[in-house]
Amino acid sequence: MKHTLSVLVENKPGVLARVAELFARRGFNIDSLAVGTTEKPDISRMTIVVDVAEHSLEQVRKQLHKLVNVIEISDLDPETSVARELVLAKIKVNPENRSEVIEIVDIFRGNIVDVSRESIVVEVTGNAQKLRAFEELVKPYGIRELVRTGKVALPRGK
């Protein structure tokens, strides 16, 4: 079962290594991991998606808590949180189908960030389903390269 952990950490050197090492050593798989600064410069937020059973999730959380630089961990419930991911995709185009592709990008409220003769680079944000749907639709044109940021998430309200 997939869980999204939002982890507040002290912004100190080696924190990412400590977290990654802990997952590796305890045999937990990371689906995605996104790190960035928060409104406080000395604190970063990691959004970690793990695919583990309930019992292991408990261990992941407890073990993470033992890291001295980890301040707070919350397991984000999809019902009460918002999650987004950004994808950059370089799609093969030619003069015939370019407008078709642009139309799809528009439907997904994406942006075209680079254009060349044979390809365009587009930026789309959304939840996992939306990005998957977008990928499926542009696949027939040929995806040259693609990169995803991994999920970032925050709890709703309050």
Partner: peptide
């Protein structure tokens, strides 16, 4: 050293 000892210390500092 900090890398090597990471999994066997409570915490470490460079």
């Amino acid at each position: 050293t900090t890398g090597i000892t990471m999994p066997i210390v409570k915490h470490n500092y460079l």
